[in-house]
Design a protein around this nucleic acid. Structure first.
Lengths: 389, 389
DNA sequence: GCATTATTTTCAATGCTCGAAAAAACAAGT
DNA sequence: ACTTGTTTTTTCGAGCATTGAAAATAATGC
């Protein structure tokens, strides 16, 4: 659901009767979870009783959303209506968490935000953090992360203790899947594999609108699926991962014919990646070759995934989406060389430039949903039927 | 649920109250779907009112279950209680369906069974067929199959027309997953990857008790996941599939140093496979090597699957289960060489010798469930709550 | 002011589920 | 034979979400 809707529209949307909708909404109104507003009707129809829209009460709750990336952090304050209230963006250096406890870093940013919007302090209900890496089985800690000095520290638990608020950790790949689900209505109930290609390679998958993936994490380790046994050295320390051929550092390495066993660069500037893509587009042999190797790794990875899971859509997001056309021939070739690819054909693979939007949207929707299901869970279940979908 | 249960036991099992159970059961009794029988109490407790067990009425329906394999066909007549009434087994030659329409073959076997149990003719409600290969998206046809001359023929539709009964096609890998779920109570709600290794390589997966896999099929194409680009020739015509290294014909090919681009043998006798395993166990170098190559292929396949899906159990079934120990070192090595393997460790991989049992059990349970959900679906939904789990 | 139109609410009925109490069916002790 | 204890099963009244149909509401168009 997005934005304000009339009760009638909600009834059609959820399949419930008008009678039920009235009952549910009057409950939610009493609880202050939703509020009414007069509808302005932009459409021609002006006859009949005007609809009164209901929407989530923006002030009912707030959430702080952290997006931690290899070279960037972003903190957003959002309200229960899903509206972005305030946002701060910080460049990160690879060594930042060596000298600064992650919990402290997060706490200070949060204070800065709350200082600018004091009203949100009382209604702040949740803190959610997007991270890259492998989460603990219980989702409370981080086992491994490409963000240096971040894994191991139990910053989520510490922050939760300090603020006396629930703090949740989310794998970025999962949010990618959650976000694309919400951003494009056509994908909301589809089976989608969303592949991030950039500083890392990650994938989130949905099956008929449900987030899937390794266990509870709800994401895959696609970037660290083996591509070539004993192959190129990956940032994770293993060899032959897809990421070690398709991430920005791998393309850099291959474009300059650095041995593939050389240590990966800790971070690759965006303009350098862009320059390599341009060189490849203008025919530079070694740059082209690097992108071909990347396409081949992604293609075989997708082909292997297709043996297990059959998405209706494949989305490539992130900086690598810009270079999809450079990689596409190799991707297609790898997929068509497999049984399922040859029989069912290659799935539609489309690029979607901006990756920050789906990650933020995913984090937002997941967190609002958590507020509904966990924090407001005292209500009987039926009253939540209208909130979903 | 298995077999007869008292109402009290069912109430505990389903979480419903005794009152609801009485209401539901009296409905089902009236409809003739379940029947009562006096309980013999083998346990010590002899006090109190004796329980009257309820069970599915065996005579309420019958189903014919076909299991089609590369070299064998099996037809079973089962009743609504899940009891095997009659069974016929037929050896198949690779050319049988070249001269005989599959529909005719199935029809004649079914007539033979019904002639011996005429009472089942009236109550026969469903025909279900287990096949190997790739189904059409709608599940009504077969796009490709290792069983020669079977794909393409719309025998399921023809048989359905002829008998005026629903005929369903099931991918064998899916039934494998369904069957293991039912055979071991510990696996019923677990996340399991069941891998068949034998004349082909196939895999069915469950996630928390739900059958998963490529779309509706509910099975994977694990055997045709690429292992080595441009590698050994597979029966499917592609190159480098896992099956082309780990199926019986591949082991035969590698053990005798036949070039891996040589055409796969159409069928490998069981005793020849057994002999190769014995030779490997007694130290024969080329036989050992062949099983090592197979283990490596399966290991990398599992490692790649683990990047996407995270089962709590991995079961190896079929003839290849007998040779698991020959392959295990290579499997473990491949898994531990990946990021998830190194962090989470290798999942428990266990062998389960007999594969016919899970396939039959899966076909049986799926078909009985279809009878409940489709054929008996006129009943209000709540009456079916007790039948599940 | 009155007909028309669309949204929202009211109201009585339905259907599923439950807890508590009662009934049923048997074993064991007296 | 009768009572007591135990366990299963049924009955009964109540609760609750949901529904369809009808009524109420709030606008526009004439």
């Amino acid at each position: 659901m997005q934005g304000a809707q009339s009760r009638t529209a909600l009834a059609n949307l959820t399949g419930l009767s008008h009678a039920s909708m009235t009952a549910i909404m009057s409950d939610l109104l009493n609880q202050g979870i939703v509020s009414e507003l007069v509808a302005d009707r932009p459409d021609g129809r002006a006859r009949g009783r005007p609809a009164t829209f209901v929407n989530f009460s923006r002030g009912a709750a707030h959430a702080a959303l952290f997006e931690l990336d290899v070279n960037r952090a972003r903190v957003s304050l959002v309200d229960y209506g899903g509206v972005l209230v305030d946002r701060v963006e910080i460049q990160l250096t690879p060594t930042i968490f060596a000298g600064l406890a992650p919990c402290k870093f997060l706490s200070e940013r949060l204070d800065a935000l709350l200082a600018r919007t004091p009203a949100a302090t009382k209604t702040l209900r949740r803190i959610a953090i997007s991270v890259q890496g492998i989460l603990e089985r219980d989702g409370r800690g981080l086992r491994w992360s490409p963000i240096q000095h971040l894994a191991g520290a139990s910053f989520a638990a510490e922050l939760s203790e300090e603020r006396n608020l629930p703090v949740t950790l989310h794998k970025r790949g999962r949010l990618l899947a959650e976000g694309t689900r919400w951003l494009d209505p056509a994908l909301h109930e589809a089976s989608v594999a969303t592949v991030f290609v950039g500083s890392t390679v990650a994938m989130g998958v949905t099956f008929r609108g449900q987030i899937m993936g390794r266990g509870d994490e709800g994401a895959t380790e696609f970037g660290h699926m083996n591509h070539v046994p004993n192959g190129a050295l990956c940032r994770c320390g293993m060899r032959g991962c897809i990421e070690a051929y398709a991430a920005d550092y791998a393309i850099l390495r291959n474009a300059y014919s650095v041995p593939e066993t050389a240590s990966p660069a800790p971070a690759v500037p965006a303009q350098q990646y862009e320059m390599l893509a341009q060189r490849a587009e203008t025919g530079d042999r070694s740059a082209t070759h690097a992108f071909h190797l990347a396409g081949r790794a992604i293609g075989f990875g997708l082909s292997r995934m297709l043996a297990i899971y059959d998405p209706s859509h494949v989305l490539i997001v992130g900086p690598g989406a810009r270079a999809l056309e450079l990689m596409r021939p190799e991707i297609d070739q790898a997929i068509l060389g497999s049984l399922v690819g040859s029989i069912n054909g290659s799935p539609q693979i489309v690029a979607h430039r901006d990756e920050t939007e789906p990650i933020f949207k995913g984090l937002l929707m997941k967190t609002l949903n958590d507020i509904d299901l966990v924090d407001f869970a005292a209500l009987p279940s039926s009253e939540r039927a209208g909130l979903e979908s």
